[in-house]
Amino acid sequence: MKRAKARHLAPKTERVQEYLDGARDLFMFSMKGEPLTTDVSMVKAAEVKVRRALLLDPSSYDAILLLGDILADYDDDLKSSEEAIRWYDLAMSMEPDDPEPYHGKAGVLFWDLKQPGAAEQFARQAIALNCRRRRDVFLLEMAYSTLIAALMEQRKFAEAREALRKAQWRCPTESMKALVADTLRELPPES
């Protein structure tokens, strides 16, 4: 009996992975051009595929996180932003040490819902988890970008300067150097 069940699960697991791979590809290729634009039809197709994966496996962490990312990318309304946050919250409850859902939620809170104080909290958590767990430089750059923007919006200039110093040290990339230089020009002089 166990063997028959295991054989039955393999195709289901493979289909979930196929849907996820297809959704990731569509989502990644939906963003193109200079300046970056999003092909909404490709994002919607990615959403359909990831929801199919969740129908087959409602506990798929990767699908839950990807759905949060897809919904966060919609520029259409408050509803998709709030739904993205719910998916990120579910992802955080499943994998509390993964920085990605914290970063995703920070981005939605800051850029879509205009809540810099809450965004700051989640960006700081994403940075701390990333530094402790795996050092994904791209994710670290993005989390620092959100943190610095949230601090600037709240006029927490001394904290923004400190975040810039840490970001430059932890992410010695060209894009981070450019962000630091641009942001330092925007900051009022230190008192």
Results as ranks from 00 to 15, higher is better:
16 V>Y: 09
66 L>D: 07
39 D>V: 08
100 E>T: 12
93 S>H: 02
93 S>C: 05
41 S>P: 05
153 E>S: 13
154 Q>G: 03
36 L>C: 04
26 L>M: 13
46 A>R: 09
16 V>F: 12
22 G>H: 02
136 D>H: 04
127 I>N: 06
19 Y>L: 13
76 D>H: 02
166 K>N: 00
81 S>A: 15
100 E>S: 06
42 M>S: 15
17 Q>F: 10
160 A>H: 06
20 L>W: 01
109 L>K: 02
141 E>C: 13
109 L>G: 08
69 D>C: 04
38 T>C: 11
148 I>M: 07
52 R>H: 03
159 E>V: 04
116 P>K: 03
131 C>E: 12
43 V>A: 09
101 P>C: 10
97 D>W: 09
18 E>I: 00
143 A>N: 06
173 T>Y: 00
62 D>E: 15
151 L>A: 06
47 E>A: 12
134 R>H: 07
45 A>N: 05
102 Y>Q: 12
68 G>Y: 03
73 D>H: 00
185 R>N: 10
183 T>Y: 01
139 L>M: 15
128 A>Y: 01
191 S>K: 07
166 K>T: 06
153 E>Q: 13
45 A>E: 15
90 L>Y: 01
61 Y>L: 10
59 S>F: 05
10 A>W: 11
123 A>Y: 03
13 T>E: 12
32 K>M: 06
87 W>S: 06
153 E>Y: 04
177 K>R: 09
1 M>Q: 11
24 R>N: 09
151 L>D: 02
183 T>L: 03
155 R>D: 06
18 E>D: 14
35 P>T: 00
15 R>M: 15
26 L>A: 14
72 A>P: 00
15 R>N: 02
90 L>V: 02
178 A>K: 09
71 L>G: 01
50 V>K: 02
158 A>P: 03
58 P>M: 12
43 V>C: 12
79 K>D: 13
132 R>M: 10
133 R>G: 14
152 M>E: 09
183 T>N: 08
159 E>R: 06
109 L>E: 10
63 A>H: 04
120 E>D: 12
105 K>S: 10
122 F>T: 00
87 W>R: 02
26 L>V: 12
157 F>K: 03
140 L>E: 07
172 P>S: 14
107 G>C: 02
127 I>Y: 08
162 E>L: 10
150 A>I: 08
91 A>W: 01
42 M>P: 07
78 L>S: 08
78 L>V: 07
191 S>N: 13
146 T>N: 01
131 C>V: 07
